[in-house]
Amino acid sequence: MSKLSDRDIRGIIRQWKRGRPVRDLADYHHVSRQRIYQIIAAYRQTGCYPYPQTPGRKPAQIPHETETLVLAAHDQYSLGPTHLEKKIEEVDGMHIPHNTIYRILLEHGRVEVCMKKRKQRKWVRYERDHAMSLWQGDWKMISLDGQNRWLIAFMDDSSRLITCYGVFDRPTTHFTMQILEQGFREYGTPLEILTDNGSQFVSARNPKTADHTFRKFLESHGIRHIRARVNHPQTNGKIERFFGEVERRAHRFGSVDAVVRWHNEIKPHSSLDYDEPAHAFWYRLPPERILGYAQRWMDAQE
């Protein structure tokens, strides 16, 4: 069942006023009819939009006596909330949690905002708006039929589509370029490619400036190479998650090919509004790419 936002609730009230059936409103917003009736009843009673309340318990009201005691102790001892908690318990025999002391001192401007007590920043998803803007790729050792093999894969950052992949006995730059050539033939060349700082992609001596076969390969195709931050695997997190799927499902599905088909065509992805990567790839293409694919298809028919 979906969680309704303030905007959803305003829309429900407006559509209800225009005579839209409750059944249709419930189906459109993926909620029960009872929930729609609750919103309408609350609006009728108050005349205001019944926006969702902030989850969690509301802070308890601090007694005036407690507030007076804390402020007096702070004036006397000039201690922070944690130490003041111990001092008040020792001297006055009264336990006041340091979080409560912090709230009192903060309200009266006695302390500054503690960054650790601030709400955690909402999780932000970093992805490109359009397909073919960026591919991210990497090598991963996996166990197949009791043997350790090396899997190379590249994923479209926007749609999560696995554009090309291969399994080899060892990870090399030659095999990396070979797999990318396959991907280029099928999908064309992306604007940028993101990799880590492995020796298959960059020079071990001087990653920033030294010539490397892979770097020259990308330059010859007009592709910008982006290197992930050192010791920061989250930068390549999407392809790493795909590797985890391969490790969990390759034995069950019987092959890496089957896992890739499942990932691209069957598995709905929450970041794609529960669409499949193979579908999301096409509707996330920029217009100029769509025209290019149409021209390639027409040329292939001739």
Rank of each mutant, 00 (worst) to 15 (best):
M1W: 07
L4W: 13
R10T: 01
G11Y: 03
I12R: 13
I13A: 05
R14F: 08
R14Y: 07
R20S: 02
A26W: 12
V31P: 12
V31F: 07
V31M: 12
Q34P: 02
R35L: 10
A41M: 03
A42D: 15
Y43M: 02
Y49T: 04
P50K: 08
P50S: 04
Y51E: 06
P52T: 08
T54M: 10
G56P: 09
R57M: 03
P59I: 02
A60E: 13
T66A: 10
T66D: 07
T66V: 13
T66C: 11
E67C: 06
E67M: 12
Q76S: 11
S78H: 15
K86P: 01
K86Q: 08
I88E: 14
G93L: 06
G93F: 08
H98Y: 12
N99L: 09
T100E: 14
I104E: 01
E107Y: 10
R110H: 10
V111Q: 14
E112R: 08
C114D: 14
K122P: 04
K122C: 07
W123D: 07
W123C: 03
R125Q: 13
D129N: 12
H130R: 15
W135S: 05
D138T: 05
S143E: 05
S143G: 05
D145W: 07
Q147D: 04
N148Q: 08
R149G: 02
I152M: 10
L161Q: 06
T163N: 01
C164A: 14
G166R: 12
G166W: 09
R170P: 02
P171G: 01
P171T: 00
T172P: 06
T172D: 01
T173W: 09
T173D: 12
H174E: 13
F175C: 06
Q178T: 04
I179H: 13
Q182T: 11
G183R: 00
F184Q: 11
R185V: 00
Y187F: 15
Y187L: 04
L191I: 05
I193K: 14
N197V: 02
G198C: 06
Q200S: 15
K208I: 03
H212W: 13
F214N: 02
A228S: 15
A228W: 03
R229T: 04
V230S: 15
H232S: 11
Q234F: 00
F243W: 10
V246N: 11
R248K: 15
F253T: 03
F253I: 01
G254L: 02
V259G: 15
H263M: 11
E265Q: 14
S271N: 13
P277F: 01
F281H: 13
W282H: 12
W282D: 04
E288Y: 15
R289W: 13
A294Q: 12
R296H: 09
W297R: 15
W297I: 07
A300N: 01
A300G: 01
A300E: 14
Q301M: 07
